[in-house]
């Protein structure tokens, strides 16, 4: 077993985020979580989309794949399915995941591939200088916008729930310790975990700042909220769970909850693949050709 220190997970490269950016907190939390879970850097991959948040992999000493705007989820799922023994974390911003990548966000929920997706939500497109993101509310005007936002907001938690994510959580970028625990839980969850991170953008978002968030945030778990949804609940019990989830996921304004909102059990896509690939995941695509192809056998149905 490798003996690695927390600093071993940190790359030499210095982040080029703005001073005070919420991304720093998420990076530290992710680095600490990988350390505490004793993840082998050569068996761990952090994928990202495009944007400020998407630079995260470059600052971590594990395999890093910085992909295309909005496409991080299909790429990460492809890697995880082809090599199911990798630890896969995908990260990206709100524009990346819920704007250009919204279709992939929804489709990923239908599959339940065993990985964690962290969405950095600062409500703006930072790298292109502050245009409205898909989580900025209707009528809201950050200092970077010439006019109030004419489009409405997506609720990432409700969307993830509707799509079928089996673990749904929310953290706060400046609460590194709390965030680290959520990341660990998301990685350990068997299935697709979605972690929504509230991440102030000190440069472009003057509405939802550190000062704005601080008095509003509270921990769900400290108020006795139980996110666990065991298998075999009666329809009435499940309705109750869903109603509670929905109320908490929609709560925004004076009080904003963080913590684990939903934790359910469902077959992972890897398990579903076994229905037609009986040797999976023992024999998995990344292993390559292990035995000669029975071409004769395949040609039998075409024989004249």
């Amino acid at each position: 077993m490798l003996e690695l220190k927390p600093a071993d997970y940190k790359a030499e490269k210095n982040p080029d985020w703005c001073p005070g950016c919420g991304d720093f907190g998420i990076l530290s939390a992710l680095q600490m979580a990988l350390f505490e879970l004793k993840k082998d850097p050569s068996r761990t991959v952090v994928f990202s989309g495009i944007g400020c948040s998407a630079k995260t992999p470059h600052y971590l000493n594990v395999y890093g794949v910085h992909t295309l705007h909005g496409r991080v989820l299909p790429i990460a799922q492809g890697a995880k399915l082809a090599h199911p023994h990798l630890t896969v974390v995908a990260v990206g911003g709100d524009g990346d995941g819920l704007g250009i990548g919204a279709g992939h966000f929804v489709a990923a929920g239908r599959r339940n591939v065993d990985m964690l997706y962290i969405l950095y939500d600062n409500e703006v497109y930072g790298l292109t200088k502050g245009q409205a993101g898909p989580t900025l509310g209707f009528g809201e005007k950050t200092k970077s916008l010439p006019k109030p936002n004419p489009q409405g907001r997506i609720n990432p938690l409700l969307l993830a729930f509707a799509a079928g994510y089996t673990w749904i959580g929310r953290g706060y970028a400046y609460d590194v310790k709390g965030l680290k625990e959520l990341i660990k839980e998301g990685i350990l969850h068997r299935g697709l975990a979605f972690l929504h991170v509230l991440q102030p953008c000190p440069t472009y978002n003057d509405l939802h700042t550190k000062e704005w968030f601080a008095p509003r945030l509270y921990r769900l778990q400290e108020e006795g909220y139980d996110p666990y949804v065991p298998e075999g609940l009666s329809p009435e019990e499940l309705d109750g769970k869903m109603a509670l989830f929905q109320a908490k996921a929609a709560e925004w304004g004076e009080r904003i909850p963080v913590g684990v909102f939903w934790r359910a059990e469902a077959p992972t896509f890897e398990e579903r693949l076994q229905a037609y690939l009986p040797r999976y995941p023992g024999v998995y695509p990344a292993l390559g050709q292990r035995e000669a192809l029975d071409l004769e056998g395949l040609l039998r149905e075409f024989a004249l």
Binding site: V65, I75, Q77, G78, L86
Partner: peptide
């Protein structure tokens, strides 16, 4: 893109 993700694992 999913095929690319798979290809990256070999």
């Amino acid at each position: 893109t999913m095929a690319i993700g798979a290809a990256l694992t070999g």
